[in-house]
Design a protein around this nucleic acid. Structure first.
Lengths: 168, 168
DNA sequence: TATTGTTATACTCTATAACTATA
DNA sequence: TATAGTTATAGAGTATAACAATA
């Protein structure tokens, strides 16, 4: 609604469709591998990996949600699943008693490790194989621009506004 | 399992994560728009758009499935939904009586049209805005390479092997 | 009053397997 | 026997709204 574009040209359409198709196929393949190697969904892997990147392997629920992008209740659901499997723990935060700290357990790190090599292999075979070095660098730069832009312009997605809930 | 990669460097990781994040955010934003403008899920939009691209607006179920990639039953499900809404029709194929021809109705074309401008606006604002012409061309070329590669190397995903169904 | 998180619930979607029918 | 599609069913995931507790 803020754009005055009326159409996309063939190149733009190609870029868009290729993005959707490649990311979809890649995600599908990776999900299969994650499920086989560690019985993880992609979201669960992302959560574990995000925790793994976080120095002490611990984050507040809210911070963990950022970048994995969905509703609070969805995060609670996944956190429960991961906790029941012993891959993370949840405990009240010391400084802010409203918060919950989610921490990676040793078992969680093990699953992450068990899954990682296969994950990389899939990426190498399916995604990077047809690209040379400069392609990869270009891709990283360009998609990095898009990512930055998107982060700065959140699609006001979770508009707290009540919807009209149309014909149904 | 066919790759001997052991790790990815920072650039590669960046490209991968950016791809996942941008496509995820983009898809999410587009889904919101599609839902608001035409009460369509992304898959439903893809199916309608695929039919719209097909000259006479008609395709066999199997051909329609290609590129939208999922199980036959999933396609049947969505085709039923679209048919009930009057956006497509299903009829037995003339030449091969096993096949079903899915055809876009006028109502289907209308919904597609109703949704299209907003769709393009979201893409323009969220995806193409930070890119210049050469970026878009590079992106189209590189992702096109990946897409071609993936199509030629299907991730033998649905390994027909029975799973061990681990600890649960 | 705003923020953090949980719960209950309903719904959408996807996958599996068994099945029918045609080639 | 292989291909095209449907059905039944079960499960995972997500979103919404109402709620409780802390800041």
């Amino acid at each position: 609604m803020t754009s005055d574009r009326q159409s996309l040209d063939a190149i733009e359409l190609g870029a868009y469709f290729s993005l959707i198709e490649t990311s979809s196929l890649l995600k599908h393949a990776v999900e299969q591998q994650l499920k086989d190697a560690g019985d993880l969904s992609y979201v669960q892997f992302q959560l574990l990996a995000t925790l793994g990147d976080a120095g002490d392997g611990s984050m507040r629920m809210t911070d963990l949600a950022d970048g994995v992008v969905y509703s609070r209740s969805g995060l609670t659901y996944q956190a429960q699943v991961l906790e029941q499997r012993g891959l993370v723990t949840r405990s009240p935060s010391a400084d802010d008693e409203r918060s919950v700290e989610v921490a990676l357990t040793d078992a969680g790190r093990e699953v992450l490790a068990a899954v990682f090599l296969g994950h990389i292999a899939v990426l190498g075979d399916l995604f990077f194989a047809p690209l040379d070095r400069s392609d990869i660098e270009s891709l990283a730069r360009i998609l990095g621009l898009v990512r930055e832009h998107m982060r700065q312009n959140p699609p006001r997605s979770a508009a707290p506004r009540a919807k009209s809930r149309g014909t149904r």
